[in-house]
């Protein structure tokens, strides 16, 4: 048991080679250290997806925290039919899309929020060096509609496989492909001035 846990705990955050089975078993048994390990392993990935989707660090942190609390509350119901990471991405995506659809948020978030997205670089020094292109890219991402944005964020920014995206968003694979292609083409169009 301790050995299993140790092997699960040994992975680095975001490591895709993570063998989730011992971690899931420990989580189901209510091991606090297992939950801690889950948070450590996925906090940056979950926060990053939320940030790229919402373009607001405060909101992204709220969503990321809610993701982990939901996992904590319902890990006993996790049937293991999908990967634990896919489940995490599904919750994150759903919470982000729900926020984007909120009418009150749509009024609140304006150009300022889109600008903050460009400022979301973790390193303040690097932020100053961020190119105009990078700022434009973040702005363009923020201008995509939510359904397209989540596909681009999961695939191109965070490198998920098509199948994993389809599972997380509960979409057919073909829909994921077409949505991703439309999003990329739209981004290309928005970045046209910077690409020529």
């Amino acid at each position: 048991m301790e050995r299993e846990l140790s092997s699960a705990l040994a992975v680095q955050p975001g490591d895709r080679r993570l063998d989730e089975r011992p971690l899931v078993e420990s989580l189901r048994r209510g091991k606090p250290e297992a939950f801690e390990r889950l948070v450590l392993a996925y906090q940056h990935r979950v926060f990053s997806i939320a940030l790229r989707m919402l373009a607001d660090r405060g909101e992204a942190e709220e969503v990321a925290q809610e993701v982990f609390l939901r996992v904590h509350r319902s890990i006993r119901d996790f049937r293991g039919e999908a990967k634990l990471s896919t489940w995490l991405y599904a919750i994150t995506s759903r919470l982000c899309l729900n926020r984007l659809k909120s009418p009150s948020r749509a009024r609140r978030v304006g150009e300022a929020a889109l600008m903050r997205m460009a400022d979301a670089h973790p390193n303040p020094g690097a932020r100053l060096e961020a190119s105009e292109m990078e700022a434009a890219l973040h702005r363009a991402i923020g201008e995509l509609d939510g359904e397209q944005r989540i596909v681009v964020v999961l695939r191109d920014v965070h490198g998920l496989a098509y199948e994993e995206i389809a599972a997380a968003l509960d979409l057919p694979l073909g829909t994921v492909r077409s949505r991703l292609h439309r999003a990329r083409m739209e981004l290309k169009a928005r970045l046209e001035p910077f690409l020529s």
């Binding site: 940056h44 292109m133 990329r184």
Partner: peptide, 13 residues
């Protein structure tokens, strides 16, 4: 464009 997207670093919590 896709290359730029893939170059976006993962944000840290």
């Amino acid at each position: 464009t896709v290359g730029l997207l893939r170059a976006v670093p993962e944000a840290r919590a």
